[in-house]
Design a protein around this nucleic acid. Sequence first.
RNA 1: UGGGACGUGGCCAAGUUGGUAAGGCAAUGGUUUUUGGUACCAUGUACCGCAGGUUCGAGUCCUGCCGUCCCAG
Length: 365
Amino acid sequence: MKILVAMSGGVDSSVAAALLQDEGYEVHGLTMCSWDEQTKDDPDWPQKDPTVAQARAVCDTLGISHQVLDLRSSFHERVIEPFFLSYHQGLTPNPCVVCNRQVKFGLFFEAARKRGISLLATGHYAQLVPCGDETELRRGLDTRKDQSYFLSRIRRDVLPSLRFPLGSLTKDEVRGLAQARGFQSTTQKESQDVCFIQDGRYADLLALDKRFQSIGEGEIVDEEGRVLGRHRGFFRYTIGQRQGLGIGAAHPLYVLGLDPQANRVIVGAKDRLYAREMVLSELNWIASQPPLPGEPLACKLRYRSPQAQGQMVEAHHGPDGTTRVVFRFDEPQLAPTPGQLAALYRGDRVLGGGWIVSGPGYEWD
RNA sequence: UGGGACGUGGCCAAGUUGGUAAGGCAAUGGUUUUUGGUACCAUGUACCGCAGGUUCGAGUCCUGCCGUCCCAG
């Protein structure tokens, strides 16, 4: 049986490919060449890209085929441009989540189909469990490494065609397998932060865009409007942020909100960051049966933060299959941030994920 | 300029009955990490407003000056 593996050249995808091969699959490697400010205009870049070269080397070692998918323009259109727009509106985007839905489990899946391959695998730490006539997405066994949060917005209909060979392994086990197979990449650094941001701050990338160049300094104010200091552009800050404000005070100050229109950053004490409820939009359900309001659920507000218990108190299901909900936490949570992802779980099972619309202090009545 | 208070590293701020100066915030570096952020760890500069004096020794006592603030007016 044929299966396409998204190869990054790193440890995880390499081991994933090897494991599938052991299982008897006919493995085909595919690596995407994604957008980069420096190389976006080089027509030959896909052949020079060191990431691609590394992936190819792994495939050669395994004796499997390897192809490159030049997704530079579509990656820019589907991931980077929305990323820019989001920051421009004073939101804090999560490009990796968008990429997973749009690219890794969108364009990659189409690429597989075009090649006559119906299965797609990646090196994600998450588990897929057939259950009746649907496939459940569950947390990875290695709770320290579980990446199901990032997958909560992929399309439900692709789940049956996916395989996550690393879902039931720990990172240490994967490292061991990589070493045993002679994948030298163990010495390399793991997947970087946002792949299209070389080694700096995201704000430096934004600052290259003319839409952000017109945004200069602005005021840092408290909740009463008192000016406490100045900042270098609201898009450089996010809710919950403490570092970088440059204001000496009796107690640490955190960003409570952003005002793009006035180019102002609102700050205050940490206790002002807690929210008892939040509003989620465009909720994407992985589960065929969305949970009902009042059902006890777990929620992750960010990749590495413990799950928070709570429940939906109101849900509006739209015709497009997405939902807008009000979610109430059992205990107030720190800094739900507009633009960020909230993933909902029932136990280890991912039910879906939606974008956070409301900020700290939101109270629904 | 009649009465009162204060002036300590970028900011806030401790400093016993005088023995060469806490802490917090900010900043910087690091750890963690497929988003942003958080958290955690580690760092630094003080002629203690200025000038004199008392003392073996003063941020800590005395005098003068400068500056800020408050109350009176």
